[in-house]
């Protein structure tokens, strides 16, 4: 049975206070992302792409509206509960990888596993398996500075899936990579979506990246202006 990880943003608004002025990022935006979707969100800088990810991932709060993931209203969760929920349900992939530079690839992947009751042996086994999945089985002991950009992003993806979350939120995952590395990363994301059933929301500037998604939405000035229900494969 597939776990319900559908994401529903209902009439959400998000405002920031900038000095005396209130900046509105979203004004009553609605978005539905079904379980198993691979959604690419495109749009110019400042259109609110990353903010959408922050709101879905619970690292930022909406000003009004509702956000439901599965059957859970995450906008109503306390910070502690949200933190706990995030650790098991959401995987983040960052544009600049955000690996801890003093930890090895394996230690970076192990970080979220420290939040579980898994033993050291079980954690090591899990890390080994995930390193295999992202094709870095021989790079576990390397520091991030000893890896290429593409390899670092693979470690970032490995860390994101370490807890086996059903939702992956990817913020410009190929934005800092050359074409070949970007394609390798997008291939991995596609496999995670099609073979492992992960729901993926990816923010990108790269039009070619949208080819890997099932659908693409364009965001401009806080509103979705166009949507393509099926990405061409």
């Amino acid at each position: 049975m597939t776990l319900d990880t559908s994401i529903h943003l209902k009439e959400i608004s998000k405002c920031y206070q900038l000095g005396k002025n209130e900046i509105t990022i979203f004004d009553e935006v609605t978005l539905n992302i079904p379980t198993g979707d691979f959604l690419a969100i495109m749009g110019p800088s400042g259109s609110g792409k990353s903010t959408i990810l922050n709101l879905i991932g619970g690292i930022d709060r909406i000003s009004s509206g509702q956000i439901t993931v599965g059957s859970l209203r995450i906008d109503q969760m306390s910070e502690a509960k949200l933190s706990q929920w995030r650790s098991t349900h959401i995987g983040f992939v960052f544009q600049f990888y955000n690996l801890l530079p003093m930890l090895t690839a394996a230690q970076n992947i192990e970080l979220p596993l420290l939040l579980t009751s898994l033993s050291r042996y079980e954690r090591a086994e899990r890390v080994k398996t995930i390193l295999d999945i992202v094709g870095l089985s021989k790079r576990g002991k390397h520091l991030p500075s000893e890896l290429s950009g593409g390899q670092q992003q693979r470690v970032g993806i490995a860390r994101a899936i370490a807890m086996d979350p059903q939702v992956l939120l990817c913020d410009e995952p190929t934005g800092d990579l050359d074409r070949q590395s970007a394609e390798e990363i997008l291939d991995i994301l596609k496999i995670l979506n099609t073979e492992m059933g992960k729901t993926i929301v990816m923010v990108t500037h790269d039009p070619s990246a949208t080819a890997y998604a099932k659908r693409t939405l364009h965001l401009d000035k806080g509103q979705f202006v166009r949507k393509e229900l099926e990405a061409a494969q």
Partner: peptide, 14 residues
């Protein structure tokens, strides 16, 4: 600060 924000985003507590 980015490292702290990252591990907190991963679910580490305050």
């Amino acid at each position: 600060q980015v490292e702290i924000a990252t591990v907190r985003a991963l679910g580490f507590s305050r």
